[in-house]
């Protein structure tokens, strides 16, 4: 397990004239938390979409655990152990939070049992255990569309974690979460992912979150990785501050 868990080489994808990926090389090491930052339209979500099979790059390669995954359908990639959560939570709105989590657990064995209840004792217990780790147990019986944004984000990630991935890609896990609850949401998230030994790549706009929780930061700009390294180094790089974050270095210093 010394090699990278995820390895992207020379990824290219353009939408019309806009280069969403213009030669992306990136290695994600097992166990690390890698933050992706950068201005809107830099290609951050595109990278997640390419890795999860939702978009097909025009060039380059992606290997997961040493094996190429490019060209596989999203559900085949999920089955190999790459989970994802969404900027806009993708929950089954008419189902309860518990059923949402239980469906993810059922999905691991392919869902194909037409006569035994979804909320059979074993799956109900496991779903409750997942929800408890995320602090969502009190909301288990609530309909998913009745939750506030923070809870919806956590439930969305809980579903991805219930699939027991080795790598999770999270698109802005804290966007839309009220400022007051943001840090607690992230703390819960990081604790659960560390416990489950899940490697994480997450797109994030909040530099405080990045500084506190990321092992490494990749700075996206116009489809390229402009900088890559530990947060204290990258977030103090004058070029990054000026071009990507939009702060004059002197002001920050």
């Amino acid at each position: 397990m010394s090699g990278p868990l995820l390895s992207a080489r020379g990824l290219r994808l353009a939408f019309g004239g806009v280069k969403a990926a213009d030669g992306i090389d990136l290695d994600v090491m097992p166990g690390e938390f890698l933050a992706i930052i950068g201005p809107n339209g830099a290609g951050k979500t595109t990278f997640i979409n390419m890795t999860t099979g939702y978009l097909k790059p025009q060039g380059g390669s992606i290997a997961y655990d040493g094996e190429p995954i490019l060209g596989l359908a999203p559900r085949a990639i999920v089955r190999r152990g790459i989970g994802r959560s969404f900027q806009l939570p993708q929950l089954f709105a008419e189902h309860t939070v518990l059923e949402n989590a239980a469906l993810a657990i059922a999905a691991r064995s392919g869902l194909w049992s037409p006569l035994t209840p979804l909320l059979r004792p074993a799956w109900r217990a496991e779903a409750m255990a997942v929800l408890e780790r995320f602090g969502l147990a009190p909301l288990a019986e609530a309909r998913a569309d009745a939750l506030n944004e923070g809870a919806r984000k956590l439930a969305d990630i809980a579903m991805a974690v219930a699939l027991q991935p080795r790598l999770i890609l999270m698109d802005e896990p804290t966007s839309g979460v009220a400022a007051a609850e943001k840090m607690s949401v992230v703390e819960t998230l990081v604790r659960v992912l560390r416990e489950a030994k899940v490697t994480a790549v997450f797109v994030e706009h909040d530099m405080e979150v990045v500084e506190r929780f990321a092992d490494r930061v990749a700075v996206w700009n116009q489809g390229r990785i402009a900088a890559l390294g530990p947060p204290q180094q990258v977030l103090n790089d004058p070029a990054v501050l000026r071009d990507v974050i939009g702060i004059e270095p002197a002001h920050h210093a």
Binding site: R75, V78, R84, Q90, L91, E94, H95, A104, A107, L111
Partner: peptide
């Protein structure tokens, strides 16, 4: 229950494998 999920969030089914 997944059938009912097709109505609300079909993409999520795919991303559950």
């Amino acid at each position: 229950r997944a059938l009912a999920g097709i109505k609300t969030r079909e993409t999520r089914l795919e991303f559950m494998g």
